[in-house]
């Protein structure tokens, strides 16, 4: 499964082309903000999604629609290792997160669990809240349909492509151990 390095490969759980409206966040969005610790006695995507980003905006869980896209500046997902964060995002029906950079545990959790994430600093600068954006997960092309501008996400390392092709970490380990 040696896809050329410019390709992102199909991301598990995501269809290749996504169109959605965006929610725009700043830098250092931490996992306590994504889903506060007082809800960590729960562990299903549906329960957790009901509290997504609640401490940033108490109305957010009601406002966000399945298919909406999260866009953020640097260091998205910093803080704790809770997989409840990507789980809550997936539970809300968000198909992809685009950021300037991701905190490292969030980055691995996203790949391990099949939440598509894209590192694309230029795109983040060119997207305002509410813009309609088209994302092609297989090429990493991001098209801001509201402004007409096009951007390219950073390509995935070959190993991450293998993880993605296997369908996430655990299927990958089952094949290789």
């Amino acid at each position: 499964m040696n896809a050329p390095s410019r390709e992102l490969g199909a991301v598990p759980g995501g269809s290749a082309v996504i169109i959605g409206h965006t929610w725009r966040f700043g830098r250092d969005v931490d996992t306590d903000l994504i889903v506060a610790a007082r809800y960590l006695n729960m562990k299903t995507p549906e329960e957790l999604a009901a509290h997504l980003m609640e401490d940033a905006d108490p109305e957010f869980p009601q406002k966000v629609r399945p298919g909406d896209i999260l866009v953020a500046d640097e260091n998205f997902g910093c803080g704790s290792s809770r997989e409840h964060a990507p789980m809550a995002i997936k539970g809300a029906g968000i198909p992809v997160v685009i950021a300037k950079s991701f905190a490292r545990i969030f980055y691995r959790n996203a790949f391990n669990t099949g939440l598509p994430i894209l590192v694309a600093p230029d795109a983040v600068d060119g997207i305002s809240e509410g813009d309609e954006v088209q994302v092609d997960l297989s090429t990493g092309l991001i098209h801001n349909l509201t402004t007409g501008a096009e951007y390219e996400a950073e390509p995935l390392p070959a190993f991450m492509q293998e993880l993605v092709a296997a369908g996430g970490l655990l299927p990958y380990l089952r094949q290789h151990s």
């Binding site: 545990i105 691995r108 959790n109 970490l169 655990l170 380990l173 151990s177």
Partner: peptide, 20 residues
């Protein structure tokens, strides 16, 4: 280093983990 729950599941099963 800290990892997520899926990493822990993989480590508990195989004793292996990926790192950059």
């Amino acid at each position: 280093t800290g990892v997520g729950s899926t990493d822990l599941a993989g480590a508990m099963a195989t004793g292996q983990v990926w790192f950059r």
